[in-house]
């Protein structure tokens, strides 16, 4: 079953085009990695999918419905959620309040405040702290937890490991295994190919706004990937 199907997507930044004629597919419960160098258009792509960028052409079908013209609010309501790059926590809300923002959508399901606290016990301990007093990894946990409480069908995770200590990345990726178990499909956007392909079923590589490689994550050949990542 296909959950998300993107075909012929073009995304624009004012006069500049950032994504060219892109096709992409995510199955129900599937974990897909999207890798690419800095500036390949990964974040633009994610922001376009969730409706934060409106200047785009092409078809985006999510869960059987056309969403390419839908507002960000409606896309979220349909269950397509995102952990944005740079975490983007609400700075004047406490950890708990940040997580509670996920409840605003009223999408009920497996993920609740309690389950997020089970997943990331440190957050329960620091529930009344302000985000700026947390470590980078803890902030990332808040961002993930906040999105999980929306109980997404598909969760887009943009550059989760950026700027985090290796041990912290380990811990967060361990959580993804648990998240996947609940049937949530995942798109992991990463610059770190190794990390992403280890966690994913399938892998796309993005180069200058175009898909340069699509493959099963287990079958990646290094020379193909190098070419797809950096360009020939």
């Amino acid at each position: 079953m296909t959950l998300l199907e993107v075909s012929g997507l073009n995304v624009f930044h004012g006069d500049l085009q950032a994504i060219f004629d892109l096709d992409l597919r995510v199955g129900e419960g599937e974990v897909v990695a999207l890798v690419g160098a800095n500036g390949a258009g990964k974040t633009t792509m994610m922001r376009a999918l969730v409706g934060l960028i409106a200047s785009k052409q092409g078809r985006i079908r999510f869960d059987g419905a056309e969403i390419s013209a839908a507002s960000a609010e409606d896309i979220a309501r349909a269950g397509l959620c995102m952990v944005p790059e740079g975490r983007m926590l609400f700075d004047s809300l406490t950890v708990l309040e940040n997580l509670m923002m996920g409840q605003v959508l009223r999408r009920r399901g497996y993920w609740t405040l309690e389950r997020v606290f089970e997943l990331f016990p440190i957050l329960a301990e620091r529930r009344s702290a302000m985000p700026r007093h947390l470590s980078g990894g803890q902030q990332q946990m808040v961002a993930i937890g906040r999105a999980l409480i929306c109980n997404p069908r598909l969760l887009l995770c943009d550059e989760i490991s950026l700027g985090l200590a290796p041990l912290m990345v380990e811990q967060i990726y361990a959580a993804f295994a648990q998240i996947g178990k609940q049937g949530t499909a995942l798109v992991l956007v990463e610059q770190d190919v190794k990390r992403a392909s280890a966690a994913a079923d399938r892998l796309y590589c993005l180069l200058k706004g175009r898909i340069s490689l699509e493959t099963a994550a287990g079958a990646v050949r290094v020379e193909d990937l190098t070419r797809a990542y950096f360009g020939a």
């Binding site: 960000a72 995102m82 809300l93 923002m101 959508l105």
Partner: peptide, 19 residues
């Protein structure tokens, strides 16, 4: 809470269904 979150980040709140 929604008001404060909107004051912080007016685009990110949209991801939580807030207009």
């Amino acid at each position: 809470r929604i008001i404060r979150a909107t004051a912080d980040r007016r685009d990110i709140v949209r991801l939580f269904g807030v207009k």
